[in-house]
Design a protein around this nucleic acid. Sequence first.
DNA 1: CGGCGAATTGACGGACGTCAACTGCTGTGG
DNA 2: CCACAGCAGTTGACGTCCGTCAATTCGCCG
Lengths: 256, 256
Amino acid sequence: MRDVDVERVRALPLFRGCSNDTFRTLSAGAFLQRFPAGTTLLLGGDQVDFLYVLLDGTVELEGTWNDKETTLALLRPVSTFILAAVVLDADGLMSARTVERSDILMLSGAAIRRVMSEDAAFAVAVAQEMAGCYRGLVRTLKNHKLRGGLERLANYLITQRLRQGGDASFVLPHEKRVLASLLGMTPENLSRSIAALADYGVEVHGPSVTITRPAVLERLAKPDPLIDNHQPVTDELTGKAQRERWPLADDRTRAA
Amino acid sequence: MRDVDVERVRALPLFRGCSNDTFRTLSAGAFLQRFPAGTTLLLGGDQVDFLYVLLDGTVELEGTWNDKETTLALLRPVSTFILAAVVLDADGLMSARTVERSDILMLSGAAIRRVMSEDAAFAVAVAQEMAGCYRGLVRTLKNHKLRGGLERLANYLITQRLRQGGDASFVLPHEKRVLASLLGMTPENLSRSIAALADYGVEVHGPSVTITRPAVLERLAKPDPLIDNHQPVTDELTGKAQRERWPLADDRTRAA
DNA sequence: CGGCGAATTGACGGACGTCAACTGCTGTGG
DNA sequence: CCACAGCAGTTGACGTCCGTCAATTCGCCG
């Protein structure tokens, strides 16, 4: 594992506050692995032995029932995932799969649980991380129960624009069929919804999006601070706006 | 605050493992209050100063957008709520309102955050509690994204039956219009769905439900351990099956 | 007994899923 | 270099699920 990767992990909110001893203990039993696209890292119902940290690539968290499948979150670096199962030493409720080639760090779950009892600062960081994840899911659930498909899409686009710097043009970070699953619709309906947004000043060509009349789109979307998480999170070290700081990242705040 | 109430709080997973000092510190600044039905305890977006513990009655957590309202969880005693906002010292994302007259204990949020840094065991308990809440929401989100209204209702009934002892007959614990909101449908549609379940051996008269052919209903509902949380949780002290042990209780595990 | 809100029932419309056909891109192999 | 296979994306037709509106019934409490 390269030093630069160690630094990136150390800088995560989850590890920033813990002692050097704690961090050394955790990284001692860790290993870094590179997975090709489409690899299933974890199947729902499986015992979870590791905390995963996505260092490069994209990971999809998905749920299944009755031969149907839905995307619960799309993760971009640097993000941790399945922390909840690790904390409770429980089976995972979701499957995790790489969307593209990904570098993933795996930390022993047993070590994490042990270290939590010894380093209160780390335990607090875990609690805060879980609280952030929880609030992300509350937002997601409200997004789904209160808004229709077109409104979810409109808000997703507004969020993406802000996350990517606020320019009128930006790029969809995922394949449309994956995005559709995240937004809780079929690919066909996503297509139609995109077409419908043309009336609201949204131009889409392939993966590139231009919002020509933001005010009009916002009047449709009615973004809400209690559902959408719009602030372009600023990295405390570099001062640069960074795309993902949270575990359910990208979409933890919005999406699904 | 009566001793019996102190004991009930002390016995919660959240407080069971913490030191006597920690618990004394927290209960010192606490106060117990009785609220009438329909009281709004907390409005979405408000600063959250307290951790709430429901000792008696029923509390509804709800979300709002664009003049629409949805029930995110229904809590029964003994349950804590809005822990996530307390841990992060953030605004609440949901509103909380009493459904019936309720006794509620309020613990200083600042004290909780302070005590977490000092008592690792308590911080771990908070992390575990948050992890449990998180997993409850994952289940809820899957329930909504993967199942239709009829299937959600069928699974809700199966869960209720098990929670209430497994008899063929049991009682709906909430008004139907509230239940409808929890299940993500209109009251009218809940009525129709209930009527539709007659074909699957479900008899409903007012609040009382009888499942005459469980196997038939299950073939429709297809309950899944990764979505539904069926085990009738046993109280470790009394050995008696108890209805709610978790913060999002009742429905955290299923519902909505 | 009267009134109010909850619950039910029916009619209707809109949103969304499904199926199918078609387009366009990309990568592969002749 | 081109033909073609395969897949993502789009578009249209159609059916179903679900929300809305309105009328009515039921049950509880004054």
